[in-house]
Amino acid sequence: MLAIRLPEDIEARLTALAAKTGRTKTFYAREAILSHLDDMEDAYLALNRLENPSKRWTLDDMEQERDLDC
Rank of each mutant, 00 (worst) to 15 (best):
Arg56Phe: 03
Ala16Leu: 08
Lys55Phe: 04
Asn52Ile: 00
Asn48Lys: 09
Asp38Leu: 06
Asp9Ile: 07
Arg66His: 13
Ala43Leu: 15
Arg49Gln: 11
Thr26Trp: 07
Lys55Leu: 11
Gln64His: 14
Arg23Lys: 15
Thr15His: 05
Leu6Ser: 02
Asp61Ile: 01
Leu59Ser: 13
Arg13Asn: 09
Tyr28Glu: 05
Glu51Ala: 13
Arg56Ile: 09
Pro53Leu: 07
Pro53Asp: 04
Asp69Pro: 02
Thr58Cys: 00
Ala32Cys: 08
Glu8Asp: 14
Leu68Cys: 05
Leu47His: 08
Lys55Gln: 07
Ala16Pro: 00
Ser35Met: 11
Asn48Ala: 07
Glu63Trp: 03
Ser54Leu: 11
Ala19Tyr: 02
Asp38Glu: 11
Ala18Tyr: 00
Thr26Ile: 07
Leu34Cys: 13
Trp57Ile: 00
Cys70Leu: 15
Leu50His: 15
Leu37Pro: 01
Thr24Phe: 04
Leu37Gly: 07
Gly22Glu: 01
Ile4Phe: 03
Leu34Asn: 10
Leu6Glu: 06
Ala43His: 10
Met40Leu: 11
Met62Ala: 07
Ala46Glu: 10
Thr24Gly: 01
Arg49Trp: 04
Arg30Met: 06
Cys70Lys: 12
Glu11Ile: 05
His36Thr: 09
Ile33Ala: 04
Cys70Ile: 10
Leu47Ser: 13
Asp42Ala: 15
Glu31His: 08
Met40Trp: 09
Pro7Ser: 04
Leu34Tyr: 10
Glu8Tyr: 05
Leu34Trp: 12
Glu8Gly: 08
Arg30Cys: 03
Trp57Glu: 03
Ser35Arg: 15
Gln64Gly: 05
Thr24Glu: 08
Glu41Ala: 08
Tyr44Leu: 08
Ala12Arg: 06
Pro7Ala: 01
Leu2Thr: 12
Leu34Phe: 09
Arg30Tyr: 07
Ala3Asp: 09
Thr58Tyr: 00
Arg13Thr: 06
Thr21Gln: 06
Ala43Val: 09
Glu31Met: 13
Met40Pro: 01
Arg5Gln: 11
Thr15Met: 03
Thr15Ser: 06
Arg23Ser: 09
Glu8Lys: 13
Lys20Asp: 14
Ala19Glu: 10
Glu65Val: 06
Ser35Glu: 15
Ala18Ile: 02
Arg56Met: 09
Leu50Ala: 15
Arg56Cys: 08
Glu11Arg: 11
Ala46Met: 03
Thr24Leu: 03
Arg13Phe: 05
Thr21Lys: 02
Leu59Phe: 07
Glu63His: 08
